[in-house]
Write a protein that binds this DNA or RNA. Structure first.
Lengths: 347, 347
DNA sequence: CTGAAAGCGCTTACAG
DNA sequence: CTGAAAGCGCTTACAG
């Protein structure tokens, strides 16, 4: 049933009639190619009657400028390179959507690279995209700060989920929300926590861990870091052994994917959540509101962040100053995976 | 904290030193630009000693070909345009990943457009991308068959989740799986079903509905179509009123997102799932295995499908025959949202 | 095997 | 306001 039928056996690459060029329009409109070009790309720089004729001809021939030819001259391709570690992760999908909106606003287009969490592929993607785009938006990049700065000598660069000195940086500030989360656990009676870490190369992971550490210290709670781990559901599930071994009553996970994995595994080990183990995630992804129990997490408008980041990158490309990043904070969403610890675990 | 610091106030668009061109290499290697070009793009067409010198010079200057200039001449951009209705939907995210893999294999890159379920934006995206890509991969397109065929006169086109005469078409065949699902419901004792429809413009939605209709008829069960609806969780939830009003004991939803919405709403209405209402989804997306109850659904390797589709498109671009699409079928995954109807509802 | 030359489609000073 | 001309960086017949 689902067979691929090639349109016609020997069809070559660019099928159909060749597109009209400015020369064709010039002929039809009875003007020179220069005038066509000027009229079309610098409106207002030509006689209105001439402009009318040119536009009519363009319309008639269904003219569409050859992006490459234009790019060759202007150095602009109209494309933004977007590099994400995992397009399959709802958080990154939202960021892509936000960036796409911003790009569309400026008539720009998105060149997407999904590195599938591989540092090597990220390096490869960034160098491959380099010449094909006007700027690069690096999301949760694993590249080192120096490498990023080097990149920014070759093209415009902005980063998301990271703070790099000298580069427009956009990230959700986790400090207030995570501090609230630790406070929330404290009030529930927890005194010993675990932080189930994400990738060691993730700047954001370090920041979240440091924040939890500091907040726990403030409250005189104990906290241990468990990891690093891949930021996945499977890795979260695998971490349950170490969480149990640590003897803590609550765990904060690097992200919701890991919290969901932790929850899966807790059930498999007959641990009651939140009674035996309270769980806090991060991101408020699709699904975190219908696990059972539902997951207490930190929410943030990541789509809007992707949008701001892309707008800023475009400003940079246009030679303007990048606008200051809005102060985007994660906020605590209390659901059912956090509760009082069983008495035996309080200490 | 999260402030954007522009690298340096007045920095212009293409920062840093200009990239090396073949002329620079020619100078360093002491040969003509033609030779450089030939050596670099047609390996084996030049003296091995010359080739060595050219390569060394290229390496030394960190040469990277200007994609645009090359494209201008060859007519190839090395980009595949990928148009999806909703990047935020896990199904499409997987397809994007698959396509990305296939593209990377051929050194091609993905130009992504997310139409956010808008037909207008799809038209706009396809015409904007047209000149910037070597081919277009249309996923769950709402375009009419004629429009798609017209597009395919201008560039290479393949479609996913759709079957268009004369165009390489890739989709998950739902017939066997859905027939199994209806049989499964029959065995459980259900005799009256509802199909909660997706978008009216979705070819795949029609196919799924027709399949359910046919299967129900075969079994002498009754079935009603409820919709059309947007393919979203919210729309699924909103459809619960009509499902209840229809007095059926089981509902098959166009996709998992809608099934999850239906489940949310069923709980809100104090309906027992599966006792009062059995639910079947489609896609087996992330989350459908941890709702409570977990959702019985149809699973299929959509990532692999995206990969095959993109490979086929690339073959077409290379002027080869598109390979036949593999026969990819959805298969029934029985979980906890389907069960025996309460006796009062059996009829 | 190699080089000089033309050309891909557009833009942009430069004259007029 | 408009046109002739040069040039963006590469590729590819065409001679040699």
């Amino acid at each position: 049933v689902s067979e691929a039928k090639a349109p016609s056996a020997g069809r070559r690459m660019q099928p159909g009639k060749p597109r009209a060029t400015i020369y064709d329009i010039a002929k039809v409109a009875g003007v020179s190619p220069s005038t066509v070009s000027r009229t079309l790309s610098n409106p207002g720089r030509s006689n209105s009657e001439t402009a009318r004729k040119v536009r009519a001809a363009a319309e008639q021939l269904d003219y569409r400028a050859n992006v490459m030819a234009r790019a060759l001259h202007t150095g602009r391709t109209g494309a933004i390179g977007l590099i994400v570690p995992d397009i399959t992760n709802p958080v990154f999908a939202s960021i892509v959507r936000g960036a796409g909106r911003a790009a569309a606003t400026h008539g720009a287009t998105l060149l997407l690279a999904d590195t599938e969490e591989s540092g090597d592929r990220e390096v490869e993607a960034s160098s491959r995209l380099l010449r094909a785009v006007d700027g690069l938006l690096l999301v949760s990049t694993r590249l080192e700060a120096d490498v990023i700065r080097e990149l920014s000598e070759r093209t415009c660069v902005a980063v998301v989920n990271r703070d790099v000195e000298g580069i427009p940086s956009f990230f959700v500030n986790p400090v207030a929300g995570l501090t609230d989360a630790v406070g929330h656990l404290y009030e529930l009676g927890h005194r010993s926590l675990a932080y189930v870490s994400g990738p060691s190369t993730s700047w954001m992971n370090r920041l979240r861990w440091e924040t939890c550490l500091e907040a726990a210290l403030q409250r005189e709670m104990t906290i241990v870091e468990i990891g690093p781990n891949p930021p996945t559901r499977a890795a979260g599930a695998a971490a349950i052994r170490r969480v149990r071994a640590a003897g803590v009553s609550a765990a904060l996970a690097f992200n919701d994917l890991m919290a969901i994995g932790l929850l899966d595994a807790a059930k498999a080990h007959n641990l009651l959540v939140p009674g035996d183990l309270s769980l806090v995630g991060f991101d408020d992804i699709f699904g975190s509101d219908f696990t059972s129990p539902t997951i207490t997490t930190l929410a943030a408008p990541v789509g809007r962040m992707g949008e701001s980041a892309c707008h800023a990158l475009i400003a940079l490309i246009e030679g303007e100053r990048a606008p200051a990043a809005p102060d985007i904070r994660a906020s605590l969403v209390i659901r059912d995976s956090t509760g009082n610890p069983r008495r035996s675990q309080q200490r």
